[in-house]
Structure formats: structure tokens, C-alpha cells
């Protein structure tokens, strides 16, 4: 029971930490830090609340298998989406852009500075 209380306190501290750090702009570190804290919290829950630390090893392998395949799903999809159009034979304009141009809407012009101009270029 004492372990459980200790883990619970740790989780609260980490939650406060992630909120506080997100209020401060750390530039490129924002996302990795938030994810690291989240992974730390998840590990605490898995190891102590779910008692995997003391459990049959098979259950741990099952969990790692799940995490492994989520990473595979994510990384292999990013192989495509992060490099989309690397053959330079794909038109950068999306259907959304074309529609926006066709309607010639003022709406599109309004924010061309902040978002729409930069966004499709990432493709």
C-alpha cells in the first residue's frame, strides 16, 4: 500500500511538471520533454499499478510486443508521409488548395500569411 501511495504521489508530481514545462517555451525540446514525462508516467502505472514488476514475464513480453508493433506502424507510415513527393513527380497543390483558388475566396487570402502558404509545402 505504501508503494501505491508513493507511485500515486510521483504521478501527480510528474503531471504538474509536464504542465509547468509546457507553459515555458523550450523550443525544440517541448515535444520530446512532454513525451518523455508521459512515457515515465505510463511506466510507473504499468510497473506498479498493473504490477508488471512482479508479474509473469510473458505478460511483459506481450506488452512490449504491442509497443513494438505500434512503433512499426508509426515509423513505416512516416517513411512515406515524411518523404512524400521525393520523386518530384507529384504536384504540391492539394485538392483543398485548388478549391480555395477556384472559389477565389477572401477567406483563403486572409490567412495565407500564417498557414496555408506554408502548410502544403511540407508535402
Amino acid at each position: 500500500m505504501r508503494t501505491l501511495v508513493g507511485v500515486f504521489s510521483g504521478l501527480i508530481v510528474l503531471t504538474i511538471l509536464t504542465v509547468v514545462t509546457s507553459r515555458i517555451d523550450l523550443g525544440i525540446l517541448n515535444v520530446p520533454l512532454a513525451l518523455t514525462i508521459a512515457i515515465g508516467k505510463a511506466s510507473l502505472v504499468v510497473l506498479f499499478f498493473m504490477a508488471l514488476k512482479w508479474d509473469n514475464r510473458v505478460n511483459g513480453i506481450v506488452l512490449l510486443l504491442g509497443v513494438l508493433f505500434v512503433s512499426i506502424f508509426l515509423i513505416f507510415t512516416l517513411f512515406d508521409t515524411a518523404f512524400r513527393g521525393d520523386l518530384s513527380n507529384v504536384d504540391d497543390t492539394t485538392i483543398m488548395d485548388m478549391e480555395r483558388e477556384m472559389t477565389g475566396g477572401d477567406a483563403a487570402a486572409d490567412h495565407s500569411e500564417d498557414g496555408s502558404a506554408a502548410a502544403p509545402a511540407d508535402h
Partner: peptide, 8 residues
């Protein structure tokens, strides 16, 4: 031939 990146 779907248009995915050449890398993938």
C-alpha cells in the same frame, strides 16, 4: 503506384 514516397 499509389504516390507514396520513393523512400518507403
Amino acid at each position: 503506384v499509389s504516390g507514396q514516397s520513393a523512400v518507403s
